[in-house]
Design a protein around this nucleic acid. Structure first.
Lengths: 335, 335
DNA sequence: TTTGCTTTGGCAAGCGCTTTCACGAAACTT
DNA sequence: AAGTTTCGTGAAAGCGCTTGCCAAAGCAAA
């Protein structure tokens, strides 16, 4: 096995005894080359192990046939469902996908705006309002996930978090619960706020006072939620009989706290989450939760992005509805 | 908000009243520009919202400061632990990472060899032996995961599957089990074969006959394993008292089968898996398994890759040891 | 043979950038 | 005052590729 200097289109041209442009035409299937010439070129290319330099190609043609999915973290169950859906949809349409995890903010923006990809799918918390202005100015086709912003060549898909919070709470209310606790997520999280807004709305509609309902800090984390619920249950005189957690992880923390105090989930305290992450169906008791159409979001994002790349102006803002998944962590109120 | 034509380095040069090269020098921190000139350039660049075209940059410089992680599927719990680890390690070293999910094999190879990334991390099943030869010829720095192959600029990291199979089996043997079943993975899977080899080795060492031990087809899937174990338990006269599954998913299928037949996991039948995926600790009973150092594999892969990019020849083949994680799905043999 | 048309392949420009090199001015040295 | 060094800047080459345009060649018709 010999390591050889990288071959260029020029080398192929020389070996096949044709011009560079002919090689390019032959290799790209442009139909202006006689079959014999084409064969000669293909043979030469194979012989030299020629692989086109995509940088050159892309610089010249101005397109990369790649969609970029920009994110800073790839952990979490939400993530890979999304990426899986996106990558399949993208491949079906003749594009490739790159998940780009940039080392810093500048690299991020350079990658979005620097012609590395033909279009970008961007996670909510990756960029700020200034960045959005930048992207708009450069008119890079973009789809924003979980962040409502739009403009020409920029669309967004968000979950209907308030409605979901409302529906979830109503479900709990219908089970007879009258004292409900809410386990909030991060301080500034959009979704957490909306879910709480839905929670409040349902409470008020039922004729109850939402200010009397305890709001615990769960931070979207299992441990923080565990601690919050445990100490709450310890000190509360007449504790809530049902908890709506900001997400499934938080709900799992709550359930563990309940069990650790010797109570039974569903029987003594109902718990509900959001997201329907994979664990939720395996955990015992299996978690009642609200499932977001994550995969659908990814597929729609790709469709929208490709439409924009191919000339449609875009600029829509679509709201995706969730779905109640009732399992074993919720039950009728006994008190 | 006005959409403007894409600005190039030339536009910045004109506005700042300097040459193109001076702009380049100023922007890239090359220290041959007077502070005043540099300021002027920076101001002009900001004013024009200039973002360098990475294609041009990379074509010229021949490096992308990007590492590529090539995979066809991004699902599975194994995957995102790995990507998370890789992306963090990469960012720390001033590189970016791209997870590239190509639409077809040709695209894959073009992306690996077409100067899109400075180095590649490739999953076992993505490429065949010919591809490896190709990569070697083009001397693209590469790290192979779970596939033992190497050469100049090509290293690999594999798990010590046989030793893990051996240790897991010994653990079961020490619990007193004398009839052990093995739930095999895919037909041609390297890891599955090695795990079974370790299984056999431990059995023989204990003075038992490995040919008498039932091998069920679990296909690394929950459902297939469920069915295999259920029908086995149904028909076997003196069934095995412990099952070593090819992976955790398979083990979970086995446990569900056991429960569905009215037996108790651990008490009636012990079950063990491989991988320690996230679900395993949440499932009840929590699964005894063998944890592979996935994150460590990712970090080591990045280190090795960067070393090769920076000139080291590489070509090592490193074996990573797993670790027994004992939880609640295994117990002493009662029969 | 000449003319007009189509087919085939080659030339050269240029995508946006970095980098080498040379030039001229300013700051030194003798 | 003349030679030498230092330093900032710009001109231009060229990374590998595609593509518009033109020349050559083949062929049919006149």
């Amino acid at each position: 096995m010999t390591v050889v200097k990288k071959k260029t289109i020029k080398d192929v041209a020389e070996l096949a005894n044709v011009s560079i442009s002919t090689v390019s035409n032959a290799l790209n299937g442009v139909n202006v080359v006689t079959p014999e010439t084409k064969q000669r070129v293909l043979k030469a290319a194979a012989e030299l192990n020629y692989v086109p330099n995509l940088m050159g190609k892309q610089l010249r043609s101005g397109e990369t046939k790649m969609l970029g999915f920009f994110t800073d973290s790839v952990s979490g169950p939400y993530f890979y469902v999304l990426v899986e859906a996106i990558s399949r949809a993208v491949a079906k349409l003749g594009y490739g996908m790159q998940v780009i995890v940039p080392s810093d903010h500048k690299t991020l923006m350079n990658n979005i705006l620097g012609n590395v990809v033909d279009g970008a799918i961007i996670f909510e918390h990756m960029i700020n309002d200034d960045d959005i202005q930048q992207i708009l100015m450069h008119s890079v086709p973009t789809v924003l996930l979980d962040r409502p912003a739009h403009g020409p060549k920029m669309s967004s898909f968000i979950f209907n978090s308030q409605a979901e919070g409302y529906e979830a709470t109503k479900y709990l209310l219908n089970l007879g619960h009258r004292r409900l606790g809410f386990l909030a997520g991060y301080e500034n999280n959009h979704d957490s706020h909306l879910r709480y807004a839905g929670f409040k709305q349902a409470i008020e509609e039922a004729g109850l006072n939402s200010d009397e309902m305890p709001v615990l800090s769960g931070l979207f984390e299992e441990e923080a939620s565990y601690n919050a619920v445990k100490s709450y249950l310890h000190y509360a005189d007449e504790p809530a009989t049902a908890f709506l957690a900001g997400n499934d992880l938080s709900a799992i923390g709550a359930m563990k706290a309940i069990v650790s105090l010797g109570y039974k989930v569903a029987e003594d305290f109902s718990v509900m989450g959001f997201d329907d992450i994979e664990i939720s169906q395996y955990f015992r008791p299996a978690l009642t939760t609200v499932r977001n159409p994550i995969a659908r979001q990814g597929i729609l994002a790709v469709d929208e992005l490709l439409a924009m790349i191919n000339g449609r102006v875009g600029g829509t803002e679509q709201v995706l509805d969730g779905e109640l998944v009732i399992r074993d962590s919720t039950g009728f109120a006994k008190r």
